[in-house]
Design a protein around this nucleic acid. Structure first.
Lengths: 220, 220
DNA sequence: TAGATTGTTAATCGATTAACAATC
DNA sequence: TAGATTGTTAATCGATTAACAATC
């Protein structure tokens, strides 16, 4: 039986930070690194860093730490960044175009091979080197090209029907940029990349610090 | 003393979902809603929903639940979406342009009043109705306009110096879209909106489900 | 009233942090 | 060897879930 250990989501979210930091160190010529060093750079606890690294299966050496090269490769392997997945993006608006134009995703094993839109003025054009196809042919293309990842950048009201079409076409993972919850069968992975959520945290925390600072001033 | 209760971050992240759902219900003419209904729509536990709502200070009525209108207003107030904050965006590339073009942020109390770039070809132009100014004048403009929020969409290598300029200019909160960790004084709030992180979760989970399915097939 | 739903307290769960023996 | 660092076990912490009395 192929046993796979589920990596806790908080750990997964930290791994790309390690890859980024280690890549910078590698370019500086650093050969090995300790969990303490990583922890200090990223403002984390060193035990946490070791626990995270454990998920990749890499073992370090007491006194010297971890080999930068091996660690980068193991992290990328664990995140499946070494296997390139083809993906479709649906909704060629300004957010969609930004995602099409972002080169960094290639590094993470994501290759967007086509965009879809229902606007006749956009269908047939090419945005950032990616062809824009007819939305009504989405399901058919998914199936024919064995696409497993769909990226949803359509307006909220049509997010669900877009997801439905992707799933009928055989998609197994959906990256949802619309602010809507979408219902899917349990075998489909959905990741919400909601900027609104992130902005909410920013604005709330800003207010909390402002009010906390005031109360300190009032106290003295 | 102005006492403010810190809202746990997981709660903050869920609140925008409630706002979105409730707004849809409101437009359908729904007047009141129970925590059970919200929980079912968003696939959460109803106790969790009640705990989250508690953070806003709204109390419900047994049997009937919560008034949709009042709840929306309280949630928006809690997230500080009713107070508009002016913000600067630094880095007018394709990601920056997408953010400038996204109308939804206005709803969340974010008003991007200017963009900054160091590319002479972009300085002086207008993108999505927002003027692009000279990066070297960033600090000065921040101070003069009392800007408290900076949005970083520059390439990773210059993210830190951009943050430094913002902080010197008096910025209190930074929304960082670059993949780099940035160091800031403890009184500056930093929220990382890293798409790479979100993509990592998607790709890893996709692989985990694939491997889990395989092992099930092998077992039978 | 009876029944649904709230608000709250206690139990559970999972992630982070602390402590420390093993190792190079 | 001495000291730094790993890997691991135990303790802590915080968030979620379960249980239930209070209430409309």
């Amino acid at each position: 039986m192929a046993s796979i250990k589920i990596t806790p989501e908080p750990t997964i979210r930290r791994l790309p930070k390690y890859v980024h930091l280690l890549t910078i160190l590698k370019h500086k010529g650093v050969k090995s690194v300790s969990s303490t060093m990583i922890a200090e750079s990223l403002e984390l606890d060193s035990t946490l860093v070791r626990k995270d690294i454990e998920a990749t299966g890499i073992v370090g050496r007491p006194k010297t730490g971890f080999l930068v090269d091996k660690l980068i490769m193991a992290l990328r392997e664990h995140l499946n960044w070494n296997n390139e997945d083809d993906a479709f993006l649906i909704g060629a608006g300004s957010l969609g175009a930004a995602i099409l134009g972002y080169k960094g995703f290639r590094e993470c094993g994501l290759n967007i091979v086509a965009a879809f839109d229902n606007n006749p003025a956009k269908i047939g054009t090419v945005i950032k080197n990616v062809p824009v196809l007819d939305y009504t042919k989405l399901e058919e293309h998914c199936r024919r090209m064995h696409i497993h990842i769909g990226i949803i950048t359509v307006p909220a009201p049509v997010a669900q029907q877009t997801a439905d079409a992707l799933i009928r076409g055989g998609v197994r993972a959906i990256w949802n940029f619309s602010p809507t919850q979408i219902a899917t069968p349990q075998w489909v992975v959905v990741e919400y990349a909601q900027l609104t959520m992130s902005l909410a945290v920013l604005k709330r925390k800003l207010r909390e610090t402002e009010l906390t600072d005031n109360s300190i001033q009032e106290t003295k």
